[in-house]
Design a protein around this nucleic acid. Structure first.
Lengths: 128, 128
DNA sequence: TCCATCTAGATGCAAGTTACACATAGCTGC
DNA sequence: GCAGCTATGTGTAACTTGCATCTAGATGGA
């Protein structure tokens, strides 16, 4: 019998992948392969390695990181990434977003105390 | 002069949008238009309303929510959404992901203490 | 009655993003 | 040489998103 339900298995992409990569680069240079391993080790949902490489290139195009080839170690050359000032700014701005997101998720799962200042709008029509 | 830098303006989509919607539905029924307003009021980056509606339908297809038409109020009919057991499970599983993500972002921005148990791997090769 | 406006939901399409498979290339050990 | 590991990438189909646009009920004004 064919499985009909579309999967919604957790995956890391979009802003969450981009910002995780930027965060790992804060204070350290790193290369793609290494960053992919760190993501896996950090308990985040897996990302395809191709997606990681393409995301890094896209971050470079938008000025969040810069890169250079590192041939100082033995083995295949590594494209080392460095966080730019713009990337750092974007990252710190994203922290606010994360805080609000966090509030929503945790509010939902622990008896969710209604936030004292959110009372008086049309949302009072919520059913049951 | 044409702007050449690709935009990376924050937008809410993917897992973050889905889980925010699920969280808002915990304990309450709500309809799409209302949820879109809640997202905006919650200090999260904007989402296109079309995207919100489509995301809700997709959550329904994957069994995270169920819906019914509500014609009890005046005005256009509303498609009311209810969180399912599967949606609740997915949501609580996602909390762990969020916690790890949070750790990474905050670790990056506050002097980032090296986590005591993460020392002994190849990541020691990180350059300056 | 006609029209504008607001609420509510939805879709067509172009552009962008992703997963999966595969390709390339340097190095190590046999 | 060649298998296996490290490291970076690409082709392609499928999926997702933003924007514009559409339908439709209700309301209020001219």
């Amino acid at each position: 019998m064919p499985d009909d339900t579309p999967e919604l298995k957790p995956r890391l992409h979009g802003e969450m992948l981009s910002t995780s990569l930027l965060a790992f680069l804060k204070g350290w240079n790193a290369y793609g392969y290494q960053l992919a391993q760190k993501l896996a080790a950090a308990g985040l949902p897996e990302s395809d390695s191709g997606t990681v490489y393409r995301t890094l290139r896209q971050l470079e195009k938008s000025g969040m990181v810069s890169s250079f080839w590192d041939t100082s170690e033995s083995g295949p050359a590594r494209r080392m990434y460095t966080l730019t000032k713009a990337g750092e700014l974007f990252l710190s701005g994203w922290i606010d977003v994360l805080q609000n997101y966090q509030k929503i998720l945790h509010g939902a799962l622990e008896g969710f105390l209604p936030p004292a200042d959110d009372a008086g709008d049309t949302s009072a029509t919520a059913a049951r």
